[in-house]
Design a protein around this nucleic acid. Sequence first.
RNA 1: GCCGGAGUGGCGGAACUGGUCAGACGCGCACGACUCAAAAUCGUGUAUCGAAAGGUGUGUGGGUUCGACUCCCACCUCCGGCACCA
Length: 942
Amino acid sequence: MKQYDHRKIEGKWQEEWEKADIYAANDASDKKKFYPLVEFPFPSGSGLHTGHIRSYTAMDIVARKHRMQGENVLYPIGWDAFGLPTENYAIKTGRQPKDVTKENTDNFRRQLKSLGLSFDWSREVNTTDPEYFKWTQWIFLKMYEKGLAYKAKIAINWCPKDKIGLANEEVVNGCCERCGTPVEQREKEQWMLAITKYADRLYDDLDGVDYLERIKIQQRNWIGRSEGAEISFPVKDSKENIQVFTTRPDTLFGVTYVVLAPEHPLVSRLSAANRDAVDSYVSSASKKDEIERTDAKKEKTGVRLEGVVAVNPANGVEVPVFVADYVLAQYGTGAVMAVPAHDERDLSFAKKYDLPIRLVIEPLFVKTDGVDAVRSDKPFVERTAALCIVKHWSEDTYLCSKWKSNDWQGFITGGVEDGESVALAAEREIAEETGYKSAKYVRTCGRLHSQFYHGVKGVNRFAHFDVVYLELQDGDVAEMAQEEKDLHDVHWVSRSDVRNFVNREDMKTAWDMFSGSQCLTGDGILANSGAFDGLDSEGARRKITDAVGGSWVKKFKLRDWVFSRQRYWGEPMPMIYCARCGWVPVPEKDLPVELPAVQKYEPTDTGESPLAAIDEWVNVKCPNCSGPARRETDTMPNWAGSSWYFLRYVDPKNKEVFADPKKLSLWTPIDWYNGGMEHTTLHLLYSRFWHKFLFDLGLVPTSEPYLKRTSHGMILAEGGEKMSKSRGNVINPDDLVDTYGADTLRVYEMFMGPFDQAISWDGRGLIGPRRFIERVYSLAQEVSGESLGREADVLLQKTVQKVSVDIESMGFNTAISALMILANKLGDEANVPKEPFSTFLRLLAPFAPHVAEELWHDLGNKDSIHMAPWPVADQSKLAEEESTIAVQINGKVRATFKASKAATKDDLEGAAFSLDEVKKWVGENNPKKVIVVPGRLVSIVI
RNA sequence: GCCGGAGUGGCGGAACUGGUCAGACGCGCACGACUCAAAAUCGUGUAUCGAAAGGUGUGUGGGUUCGACUCCCACCUCCGGCACCA
């Protein structure tokens, strides 16, 4: 009997597959195309890690299944090889980055091949290959041509350790994403890409793609679009206007001061009486780094521009003007109107500088069961009415109000002494208006914070409400009478009952709102707002904006992309600076601009790229005037090459264009892109941006590159920590492939847990998949007989169906579980014939390609199993199956019986009652109610 | 603070659109077989209380339902992302 020896099997088949080239994608096929994509790795010195394997194996399974389904599959791989780690490693070891890259990619390639991944290796791309980055440079030139690439002097995030400028996206908590060093601000000339011009489309087009919802949300958050008004505040006795941006123009009447960011140009232009104080504040603000500036928790600071007064365009009220660094220059207009009553930041500033607080929004919302019922569009609200019993926060007074069907009706009565009579009146009134006959039951009681005029000390006082919720509908009147009684007894306005609803915390909240220590930031009804009183926030926004001549605009958090890096190991910018002609693009025919061979490529402290020191490379003739000129010495960030690599796979050797349009329209868009959660903001956004740009030039057929995007969960070390070299808990795939085999490793990584969730490595867990494969292997040695047992056959059909579905929905763990169940069942059978076993093998093939291939050939097949047709479930066999019906008595399952799938309700009910077990439980009792769900159960209530 | 996601056995995790006594599959563990012995392998068992009948159990507390891990509400905990974006 043959023993399973993965070392023998896996190497052999990897060779065979390569020889027969079975995974090559066909550019000239009329089969349906399928283009799955995984993020190409950065070939680091430490080799492949478990996360790569998880993602690559998953998409390999998908690719293999589709190939077996007869589709023309393009499953490519390449190398995202530019980048700091290689450069730093090269500097440390005194070697050329190019050589280090070569070595690392060779190692990665070997490792990937040892896993039996079905990549089309003939399409391998490498971002550091001049034949590749020629086109990266070419796309950049196109962007320059269209005005999307520009050079600007900006304060950039500078990492003093890596000596490199960072994009905002690369700064995490004010520190360098890579090395964790706190980032400094430096003014530098940088190449920028105007991604903000695409912000709207990058946002809107998410609606049309199939990304995991959380990925879409992250993208939207990152783009950070918000709509609002730009409103002008004229400066008194001056020609200047302060333009502010606000999403809450409905609070315009509540403005009590205006704030400028320290970098705002008006700060120096306006004539402040305290010029010195203002200037020193501005300069101290500029010295603070990003972390300090953007820490929301720190106390707000600012300086008033003495003598400068802004005029509220809504009501002519004159308000002071401040400069304060809690306002960001880069966002909106760099100036805000401050409404301390309805904005927490403004409130804390106002309190510190003793500025007035003006309430202009009444919080008119019902909070019941945690649902903001007034604004809720939940169906039950449509049929619901509420009576609100109100207790004044300080006085022993009750009010009653009513509310129904998404529509606030206001209070029907003012303060009264006798709550009960008011409640009854309100209830009657509701019944009349809604047409419902009477109240059915109390739904719940919750709380309601609202504001009402009570005339105490001439201000709006906040009160605390208790809500009694009545669902009004036609129904059994007798039943209701009792419930109504309960309602009154339990909930109506005996004062002691009210005490049960009103707890101290609620009272405190109400008090805090009134006293201004808590801020009402939600929407509500306008008050103290002149002609706009009584409007709701939503409707008032546009009206007020229009009334003061403001404009309605969209703003974004997204900023333009800092595209320059002052390092060696990246794509050189194809730009030349000529004193006479300015910036001149390198002519297309001179692309690629290659990196010169250098001895030293350490970064410089001056912030200049190491390339700047190489005179013979830097000094060139101006392509325009042939005068003396200098090359741009910045290089591109490593996001550049990965922004379009998936297009190059389509036509990797093309020397004329980045890819043949015909091939692009055959293969793109990508059907399914899987990658790490860490790339769902930056890489995804950048590559979508580039793709849209190419689409606008008519160079790619679709405006979105990826139809579907999923993400795998991270694999953590045993114990739940991150895997890292420094912790010494990194798993080396080479060892695992050697001791357990690639098939076992693949199955283990897919079986260990839900694909999209983070999970800890468990070294012992590998043994399960290994045993499973061994069991399959020994099962294969006993294939014999003519037919399979009926039960096993049905299970086989079910498994075919389940595995097919699970692969598409990334349920790899449950697919493998189903295969294990089937293998166990087959093991129990007296004999397993060849045909059903070969079906099983084909289901297994995507997961464990080597052993499946070996056993497939043992069965006498000549061609590869990976080219064999994917099994289809025999529906007729599944339909024949009887279903087991459960019999529930008072909600508990007491018996089961078998019935055909066609059995009617009456059949099932009769069958259920004839069971002894059921008779025992039902006994003398008459069933009150019987519910029959065909194919599932009979539920008897006694 | 805001936005997502998740809380199920000793562990990783199953459970279709609420419906066949929740815990599949795998790991681990216990016992048994084989062995001089061990490993490997195979078999049996493995939420919990109870002698049994029968209860109780999916973070906590309520609710809806004939029936809830699944739906609704409140609360607690953990993870991920964003965070003075007006």
